Simulated scan of single mutants.
Amino acid sequence: MAFTDQRFDVNLSILFTELPLLERPAAAAAAGFSAVELWWPWIETPTPPQAELDALKKALDDAGTQLVGLNFYAGRLPGPDRGALSVPGEESDRFRANIDVAADFAASVGCKALNALYGNRVDGVDPAVQDSLALDNLVLAARAADRVGATLLVEALNKPESPLYPLVSAPAAIEVVDKVNELSGLGNATFLLDLYHLAMNGEDLNEVIDLYAAKTGHVQIADNPGRGAPGTGSLPLADLLDRLAKAGYEGWVGLEYKPGDGPSAEAFGWRTN
């Protein structure tokens, strides 16, 4: 499989998880990567002690790795949750408490993309109420991202693995992106185009790229089926990434796949095949 010269970064929340968090940036660097991304690393709290934030910054700096993407607090991820911003009550409050913490940490390490996972539908709650809450919180997140010179990412997930998540198509996520930009007036909300999730939804990936490349702020990949490394499934990832590049996308491509049975350091052989 031949790949053109893409800017790949490693998602340290799914790769190198056999190591403690603070050892993962150095492991990514040893595997040949200068950029990484993360889900919110502190699953239990939206507001970790400053010492823990400082320790992660030091680990990134010492490894010479650039953090290029960071999730806002999203509940238990990995786990049953798919975000917090549309979930009324305590989870929405936790998301709001996290907004400035995440934005300020991103600013401290030069991260320019902040991903806000929408959250699952809640039994007994009117979806319209959740959607209104989501827009309020996304506008707050967009303002915080703008304050630190970052873009806000809105992601579509896949319905088979996330049946309660409402944004399970590219058009659904783009609709939210457009609403947030209209309400905030900032224009910094963008689409997180995850080729694996969209493939799982049965979407026409070429069409998605052609329609939405201009609104895409970040890209993530895994092969399908299996969510493994490129070449373990049937997606023509090299061709799709070439199509994205030709459509004008010049950003990072996050490697958000499962490493398989071996150590994560052995999960990148496709880059030289």
Rank of each mutant, 00 (worst) to 15 (best):
I221P: 01
S34P: 00
L12T: 06
Q220D: 08
P166Q: 10
L114G: 07
I14S: 13
A63Q: 04
N188R: 12
A145F: 02
R96V: 13
E266C: 06
A156I: 09
F3W: 09
G231R: 05
T45N: 03
F33Y: 08
L244F: 08
L244H: 04
E37D: 14
G251F: 03
T232M: 01
D223N: 05
V180E: 00
V208S: 13
F3M: 08
A2L: 10
E175M: 11
E37F: 00
L195R: 04
N206K: 12
I174A: 14
F268P: 15
V219L: 04
T65Q: 09
P163N: 04
A116T: 12
L211W: 06
P259H: 14
D54W: 13
V139M: 01
Y118N: 08
A267H: 14
S132Y: 14
F72Y: 15
E161P: 00
P127M: 13
G231M: 02
V139N: 00
D131N: 14
P80Q: 05
M200C: 15
A150P: 02
P80L: 03
T45Y: 02
E161K: 10
P88C: 09
P166V: 07
T151I: 07
D194V: 04
G69T: 13
S184L: 12
L211G: 00
L164C: 03
S264A: 15
P41H: 13
G228I: 11
E203I: 07
A59T: 07
P163F: 01
A173R: 14
A229G: 10
A267T: 14
G262V: 00
D136E: 15
V10S: 02
T190K: 15
E256M: 05
D146W: 03
